[in-house]
Structures are given as C-alpha cells and as structure tokens.
Computed example of a mutant assay.
Amino acid sequence: MLNADKGTANGLDGSKLHIGIVQARFNEGITNALAEACRNALQDLGVAPEHITHVFVPGALEVPLALQALAERDEFDALIALGCIIRGETYHFELVANESGAGVTRVALDYQLPIANAILTTENLDQAVARQTEKGRDAAYVAVEMANLLGTLS
C-alpha cells in the first residue's frame, strides 16, 4: 500500500537506492511483463528512474554473468534477475533452472549484494502468465527491503 506521506510502499524506502535489473529476452512476453511490474513497483517505492539500470541478456543462463558484471561496478545497492523458464519435454528445463538459480545465488554471496531472483520456473505458459505481474512486483520489494536491511548491518 502506498504511503502518501513518505512516497513509499509498505514502509519501504528506495529513494536513495541504485538498482540494477538483468532481464532475459527468452520468453520475452513474460519477461517484459515482469520488468514492467518490477520497474513500476521500484518507482512506487521511491527509486528514481535514473537510478535504475536495466540490461538484457539472451536467456536465463546468461543472467548470472551480467549480474556479476554489474556487481563488480560497485554502484548498486541491489540487483534483480528477471527471466522465464518453461518446462519442455527434455532435461534442459532442469539444467537451465538449476544452473541459473545457482549462479544468481553465487553472485549474491560472492559480492554480498542482495539479488532478488524473479526467474520464473513454470510447467507451462499459463502458469507463467499468472505469475508475471506479482513476481515482478515482488522482486522490487525484495530488492529494496534487502538493500535497506544490509545497509543497517554494515
């Protein structure tokens, strides 16, 4: 819920934060919806549009490398991973889901940088569509909350 007095939602304040978003283009209809919901929520949380860096990669397996490159710049308070992996008929789904997830986690731990992982892993397109807006928005909230938390712990 938006707090009109502070310009923040749910008591979270992103007004001083710099956020990086890495978006996979594969399943672009879904990832574009994730990104739109995410960017809107970041702005609702007070993150200035000019403090949001948004980059694109081919697919979910490339997301961790781009996250690492952004983390190495040491100018972000949090990062967000956006993608969509839909189960197919082969083992490829498990490989991409497991490896992209592990890569995102490794970058977060190696750089002690919050990364909201909104790489959807679904059984079918309908499940992805049903989650695209909520999960994009959730990623923004997680990124801002964790950036604020880590700011108080350091």
Rank of each mutant, 00 (worst) to 15 (best):
Glu99Leu: 14
Val55Met: 07
Phe26Gln: 02
Asp74Tyr: 08
Leu65Pro: 00
Leu45Val: 07
Ala60Trp: 00
Glu28Lys: 07
Tyr91Glu: 14
Glu28Thr: 04
Glu62Pro: 00
His18Val: 12
Leu95Ser: 05
Val47Tyr: 03
Cys38Asp: 11
Pro64Met: 10
Glu36Asp: 14
Ile85Glu: 05
Arg25Phe: 04
Val55Ser: 11
Ile19Gly: 03
Gly101Glu: 05
Leu82Ile: 08
Ile21Asn: 03
Asn27Thr: 09
Ala24Arg: 03
Leu79Pro: 08
Gly88Cys: 11
Leu17Arg: 09
Val57Phe: 02
Leu70Glu: 11
Glu62Cys: 01
Val57Trp: 05
Thr105Glu: 11
Phe93Val: 10
Asp77Val: 09
Val55Thr: 14
Lys16Phe: 05
Glu36Leu: 12
Ala37Gln: 06
Gly14Lys: 03
His51Ser: 13
Ser15Lys: 15
Val55Ala: 06
Val47His: 04
Gly83Phe: 01
Val107Gly: 04
Lys16Trp: 02
Gln68Trp: 06
Val47Gln: 06
Val96Glu: 10
Glu36Trp: 01
Ala81Gln: 04
Gln68Ala: 15
Asn10Ala: 15
Gln23Asn: 10
Leu79Ala: 11
Leu67Asp: 09
Leu34Phe: 02
Cys84Trp: 01
Ala69Thr: 15
Ala69Tyr: 08
Arg106Ile: 02
Glu89Trp: 04
Ala78Arg: 01
Asp44Leu: 14
Val57Gln: 03
Ala35Leu: 14
Gln68Phe: 08
Lys16Cys: 04
Gly11Ser: 07
Asp13Tyr: 06
Leu17Tyr: 07
Val57Asn: 01
Thr105His: 03
Pro64Lys: 10
Asn10Met: 14
Cys38Tyr: 06
Thr90Asp: 13
Ser100Val: 05
His92Trp: 06
His51Val: 01
Gly11Phe: 11
Gly83Lys: 00
Arg106Ala: 15
Leu61Ser: 04
Thr8Arg: 02
Ala102Val: 07
Arg106Gly: 00
Val107Cys: 05
Gln68Tyr: 08
Pro58Arg: 06
Ala35Met: 10
Lys6Val: 10
Phe93Gly: 09
Val47Asp: 04
Leu67Arg: 07
Ile86Asp: 10
Leu45Asp: 05
Cys38Gly: 03
Ala24Met: 04
Leu45Ala: 07
Arg106Thr: 13
Gly59Arg: 02
Ile52His: 07
Phe56Asp: 00
